[in-house]
Write a protein that binds this DNA or RNA. Structure first.
Length: 1111
RNA sequence: GGGCGGGUAGCUCAGCUGGCUAGAGCAUUCGCUUUACACGCGAAGGGUCCCGGGUUCGAAUCCCGGCCUGCCCACCA
């Protein structure tokens, strides 16, 4: 494991021994030799080395499987190897580390699995850009292997940087288990998963419309696109109407005929023959691929057009008029206000050109009307573009006709030319300017072309996928899909925090579409499918049925490769386990196969005995190099050139990192994992898919048996979701609410903060910011000295760490000189009020911290620590015990236990400074305290593996807290008077309690120490004095100064009177309300009366004093 | 178009299963070289809780409407 100081990652090399790592090294006994400031740089690397040497973060599945320890596991969301980590990663990983460290201390066998993601398209694009800049070469100037090697080198570099960053931040991952989504273990899981899905009919190949990037010439996912507003136009194109006659020829249609058929407004076109329909489009060039014109069945014109066709100008294709309710009615025919309000209604003509090969909606319409369209004599899908988005007749367009003049043109040129041609033909009805947003590719910035292309899909619409993903939700987060009065089915096993994100997750599955998993890239997992086109006829059919020349035997004669020409067919368990290859046939000539690929819910069926003609055989191979060799070298098969979508391997992360498909101890011990920490944009892309895959690939009883080998995917009973909790944290923005990004220059490198403030400060500040909202803002400033971005917010974390350091320094100075530990402290021990109060606060603090962590309320956790350490321990407890701590053994025990409890509570968020302090604290010996268990260090004297503090509820002490609060309020009141009168801090004053009020000894001790009072006197002051009001009684201070400053006193009293008057008015108003006394709880009314009485008393007293001053 | 957030002190944020004089950190002002800490200590000032209605004895908190702002998803003839 590498120390954070090293920039190189090496997860196998033993850590260098350092002096500090030796637990037997002499430990300084007191804190007095410590510097006044905690300097992170002096400790972090050294402490990291100690953790490494002790293998403190290494998880042992055996302890879980033997029942010795309960498991706690977090899988890191693997960062992309495209760039160094930013502040968002620092937040994400700090939170994971807090959870990890807390659970490790609580005694769970804790695994935080680290790793990185190959990030397919993103990484390839970054490297392509870099190679272009540095060498002036394109990807295609290299061999595939050559270029992949370049990406690999880039990945190695950034992976090392990322791991270095994570380690310097203090992430307590199991660094001996670093995974990479493309390493051999993950690759094996990918092939296995692909194979099983393929075999089960959940992976299929089909021609589909994808977002095509014509520059990169690859399909890109929706999330790899962005929308940009462009100024375009609506073009209104006329298509002449024709009628087919019996001979198969066609003839123009006249307006007269339409009028006769009842077409409204047909008489508006005298002499304008032949009749036409007008379509509106923003993309006139796609008319070349039109296969129908659609009209809404409720359009009054529809009826009279039945049986008619339109003829595409130049192309000459005769296309049917079809009726589909998808078409928006034009304003004139809208039936309801809602329809009229549709913005499209204003633009629409009521006729929609249908271009299934180039528009996703038209694709769906084409599916619905495939029969009608094909009956008209042409395929449903007419693809008019080459992969570079130039007009081409070579990719699925045959009836070019007179449209050959467009061939070879770019989309943009073709658009102009089409418009010009329509105009020349008198068929351009008009144009209207139109602003609309257009999809662009993130990577190349090119306009996305919906493009017909061969792609691999996962049938996530299957109940076994999306259905089981939703079913995993806990019942109170499951809302949709409950049919009738039935609530939605649920397995009660997956919970989102905050709960609202369950809705995002659920709705995503409700509207999910099949997942396109192929990418035309080089960087990624190759699709494990080998294809070859063969002709099947009567001669070889029987051979194939018998296994034919594809039947492959291993050396022992056992069949390694079995046909499964019916994917989804149930095999026996035995044959399924032996299966290393599965083949699917696709009829090359049949266009219908591509569009209507399956009966709903079922896999495509190809009855082998009926096969006849040219087929593409696709063989999916599962981890069988010998079969690959056979296919490639003896049978002439070639591997699919595409790679898988990055998210395919990410979706397997909970499986692959733990060793699946092997039934490893790690998998059995830690899957399902405990918590997934992530950002919300990834709920659909990643969380959903991990759940689907984990549930699909692990057997239903996995949680009980922990046995992945018995996985049976033929059942609808699903395995466990891969985690119990999904915590979705806020996104960090800059001070203006913008995303942090390189291009905006508002990014902050976490290591810059580690350098300037220390890792603990970074972590604490981020933790403190993590509320339950969606976004948090981090104002960014450029440090003029270093030129690096930073934020003043991190000072808070640094200050907090420093406070802890100094509190410990002080406590150690006291405790280090103690000699007699004394006997155990119990509830019978005579403790000071401050001690009893502190123990009570500790009991409460532990409880609050645990609750905050349990609820993933990180800001509350940080705030609890802050208040406990700074407000309670430092401001009040340490100040209170200063006079007595050196001599009171029981108090020393409380002091030591308080410090150590707080240290342990803070350790998960500030691991370095707490560990550094612990090096000294652990040497302190005091009496034990009954009911406080700190747990002893278990590994090399490290805090990081030491126990989580337990403070018995018996130490919770409301009376002590109330008494302490009273004293504290009085002290604050005295301090206020002192400040008002500019009494020097060191000056000891005399306090005269209000008449009839007795101060307990315990309170008196606190007042003396904390308010610099030397005498508490029940007699009237002899010299000059001031009166102050506290708790509705008048108290006096004397000895403030030689003379009392009357003007300060007057100012103070005037303000007090004003405040009280305001308060009196409010309270009187409340009581004057007749409903209040009647309806509010009596105790509350009583309280209000008391408050009013007190306020009046205090005001009157102040008035009196003011009058006295005036004299 | 559907969904989800946010709008509270100059800034960043708590509080919002209704009821303490609406809080914290930073910033500001005043006073402190108090022997743990000036990355500190003590004190102070600072708020139409976005706007308008409603429910209620009582609203920052609940309901309705509006304005501003951010994110996710879908769609775009």
């Amino acid at each position: 494991m590498a120390a954070p100081t090293s920039s190189k990652h090496d997860n196998t090399a033993p850590a260098a021994a350092s002096a500090a790592a030796d637990p037997s090294a002499p430990t300084p006994s007191a804190g007095t030799d410590l510097p006044k400031q905690y300097r992170p740089a002096e400790h972090e690397a050294r402490i990291w080395d100690r953790w490494s040497a002790a293998k403190a973060f290494h998880a042992d599945p055996a302890r879980v499987l033997s029942g010795e320890a309960r498991p706690y596991c977090i899988l890191i969301p693997p960062p992309n190897v495209t760039a160094r980590l930013h502040l968002g990663h620092a937040l994400n990983n700090s939170l994971q580390d807090i959870l990890t460290r807390a659970h490790r201390m609580m005694g769970f066998e804790t695994l935080w699995m680290p790793g990185t993601d190959h990030a397919g398209i993103a990484t390839q694009a970054v490297v392509e850009r870099r190679v272009m800049q540095e060498e002036g070469k394109r990807r295609t100037d290299f061999q595939r292997d050559e270029f992949i090697a370049k990406i690999q080198a880039f990945k190695d570099d950034y992976e090392a940087q990322i791991i270095d960053q994570l380690q310097k931040i203090g992430c307590s991952c199991d660094w001996e288990r670093v995974r990479f989504t493309m390493d051999e273990q993950c690759a094996r899981a990918v092939r296995e998963a692909f194979f099983r899905l393929f075999k089960d009919g959940l992976i299929y190949r089909g021609k589909r419309l994808v977002n095509w990037d014509p520059v990169l010439q690859t399909a890109v996912a929706d999330d790899e696109c962005y929308e940009a507003e462009i100024d375009g136009s609506f073009y209104y194109l006329r298509y002449p109407l024709v009628r087919k006659n019996a001979a198969g020829s066609h003839a123009p249609v006249t307006w007269n005929e339409l009028a006769t058929a009842g077409y409204p407004g047909a008489d508006q076109h005298p002499g304008e023959e032949p009749a036409w329909v007008t379509v509106a489009t923003t993309r006139p060039e796609t008319y070349l691929g039109d296969v129908a014109v659609a009209i809404n069945p409720h359009d009054p014109r529809a009826k009279s057009l039945r049986g008619l066709f339109a003829e595409l100008p130049l192309v000459g294709r005769v296309i049917p008029i079809i009726e589909d309710s998808y078409v928006v009615l034009p304003e004139a025919y809208a039936r309801t206000d809602e329809e009229r309000a549709d913005p499209k209604a204003g633009m629409a003509t009521g006729y929609l050109k249908v271009t299934p090969a180039h528009d996703p909606n038209d694709y769906e319409i084409g599916r619905r009307h495939a029969q009608t369209i094909e009956a008209a004599g042409h395929p449903v899908l007419v693809n008019i573009f080459a992969p570079d988005a130039t007009v081409s007749e070579k990719h699925g367009w045959e009836d070019v006709g007179d449209a050959s003049l467009f061939i070879g043109m770019s989309r943009e040129d073709a658009r102009k030319k089409v418009v010009a041609e329509f105009k020349a033909l008198g068929l351009l009805e008009g144009t209207k300017p139109h602003k609309h947003s257009v999809k662009h590719s993130d990577r190349s910035k090119a306009v996305i072309e919906p493009y017909l292309s061969d792609q691999w899909y996962v049938r996530v619409t299957d109940e076994r996928m999306a259905g089981q993903a939703n079913r995993a939700l806990v019942s109170d987060q499951r809302t949709s899909a409950g049919s009738g009065s039935q609530s939605a089915p649920t397995d009660n096993r997956l919970q989102f925090h905050p709960a609202r994100y369950a809705k995002t997750y659920e709705q995503w599955h409700d509207g999910i579409r099949d997942w396109c998993i192929s990418r035309q890239l080089w960087w990624g997992h190759r699709i494990p499918v080998w294809t070859k086109t063969i002709t099947i006829d009567a001669t070889n059919r029987q051979q194939l049925v018998n296994g034919g020349d594809l039947d492959f035997l291993d050396a022992s004669g056992a069949s390694l490769f079995a046909w499964s020409w019916c994917p989804g067919e149930t095999e026996t368990e035995e044959s399924a386990n032996r299966l290393v290859g599965v083949a699917v046939f696709r009829h090359v000539a049949s266009g219908r196969t591509f569009i209507g690929d399956a009966t709903p819910g079922g896999p495509p069926w190809y009855g082998l005995p009926e096969l006849d003609g040219e087929y593409e055989v696709a063989v999916c191979v599962n981890n069988a190099p010998s079969l690959v060799e056979y296919l490639e070298e003896e049978s002439g098969f070639t591997q699919d050139p595409d790679v898988l979508d990055t998210w395919f391997s990410s979706a397997l992360w909970p499986l692959s990192t733990l060793g699946w498909p092997e039934s490893t101890p790690l998998l059995r011990a830690f899957n399902p994992t405990s918590t997934l920490c992530t950002a919300r944009e990834i709920i659909t892309l990643w969380v959903s898919r991990m759940v689907m895959f984990n549930r699909y690939f692990l057997p239903a009883n996995f949680e009980q048996t922990g046995d992945a080998a018995n996985a049976s995917t033929s059942t609808t009973d699903a395995g466990p979701p891969p985690f119990r909790d999904v915590f979705v944290h806020a996104v960090i923005q800059d001070g203006e609410g913008r995303k942090m990004s390189k291009s905006l220059g508002n990014g902050v490198d976490p290591l810059d903060i580690v350098e300037s403030h220390g890792a603990d400060a970074l972590r604490y500040t981020l933790c403190n910011m993590t509320t339950q909202t969606q976004d948090v803002r981090m104002p960014v400033e450029r440090d003029p000295a270093t030129g690096k971005n930073t934020s003043p917010k991190f000072d808070m974390g640094r200050n907090f760490g420093n406070k802890l350091w100094n509190a410990a320094r002080f406590a150690l100075a006291i405790l280090g000189s103690a000699s007699n530990p004394g006997s155990a402290v119990t509830r019978e021990t005579n403790l000071s009020l401050a001690d009893r109060w502190m123990l009570s606060r500790l009991a409460g603090g532990v409880q609050q911290a645990e609750a905050a962590l349990r609820e993933y309320n990180f800001a509350n956790y940080a705030q609890t620590l802050y208040d406990l350490l700074w407000r309670d321990f430092c401001d009040w407890y340490l100040e209170a015990v200063k006079p007595t701590a050196r001599t009171d053994a029981a108090q020393q025990a409380v002091l030591a236990h308080a410090l150590e409890t707080i240290l342990r509570l803070i350790h998960p968020v500030m691991p370095y400074v707490t560990e550094a302090i612990f090096e000294r604290v652990r040497a302190i010996e005091t009496a034990p305290i009954d009911g406080i268990t700190l747990g002893r260090p278990t590994k090399d004297g490290l805090l990081t593996t030491a126990g989580w503090p337990k403070v018995a509820a018996a130490w919770h002490n409301p009376e002590a807290e109330a008494a302490f609060d009273r004293a504290r309020a009085l002290i604050t009141a005295i301090r206020e008077v002192r400040a008002q009168h500019n009494v020097p801090p060191k000056r000891m004053v005399t306090y005269h309690p209000a008449a009839g009020l007795s101060v307990t000894d315990a309170e008196a001790a606190l007042i003396r120490t904390l308010a610099n009072v030397d005498t508490i006197s029940n007699s009237a002051p002899a010299g000059p004095s001031v009166t102050f009001t506290y708790n509705a009684a008048e108290h006096r201070l004397s000895n403030l100064a030689d003379a009392v400053d009357a003007s300060a006193e007057r100012a103070r009293l005037e303000k007090l009177i004003a405040d009280r008057n305001k308060q009196i008015k409010t309270l009187e108003g409340r009581l004057a309300n007749p409903g209040y006394a009647q309806k509010a709880p009596p105790a509350m009314v009583e309280e209000t009366r008391t408050q009013l009485q007190q306020a009046i008393q205090e005001r009157d007293a102040a008035n009196e004093q003011l009058a006295g001053l005036g004299a």
